[in-house]
């Protein structure tokens, strides 16, 4: 799982560069985000602009990442494709995550907290 990272102030932007977050890659994705959280990152933007496909296992890894923060920070999602967004709607996870159309808005949102 290839993931780009950019730190903007107190916010870490994480951008998966693989096209799919699915059952074969979800474990690696989850472990990578868990490492970042354990390293002290508590404000994370997950930029999904490069991701074409997420299945329920991949979504579960994203949920797990949010839960791993233990209520001390937040994980905001940005730039999902409409197709990927439909997965969040199908599972009602769009009511759990703050999902914003651009990275700038997501960083600004987390910078306020």
């Amino acid at each position: 799982m290839r993931i780009d990272q950019i730190k903007t102030g107190a916010v870490l932007v994480v951008k998966p560069m693989d096209k799919r977050i699915d059952a074969s890659s979800a474990t690696a994705f989850k472990a990578k985000i868990a490492d970042l959280i354990q390293g002290g990152e508590k404000r994370i933007v997950l930029n999904l602009s490069e991701v074409d496909f997420i299945d329920s296992t991949g979504l579960g890894a994203i949920v797990s990442s949010l839960k791993a923060m233990g209520g001390e920070g937040d994980l905001v999602i940005c730039n999902p494709r409409e197709t990927v967004m439909s997965l969040f709607r199908l599972t009602r996870m769009n009511r759990v995550f703050q999902i914003l159309p651009s990275e700038e808005e997501a960083v600004a949102s987390l910078s306020k907290t």
């Binding site: 329920s56 979504l59 579960g60 890894a61 949010l66 839960k67 599972t91 759990v96």
Partner: peptide, 13 residues
């Protein structure tokens, strides 16, 4: 957030 499902979503989908 502590009780969010991480699995069991496939059949629902």
């Amino acid at each position: 957030k502590t009780n969010l499902p991480e699995g069991g979503m496939g059949l629902h989908i």
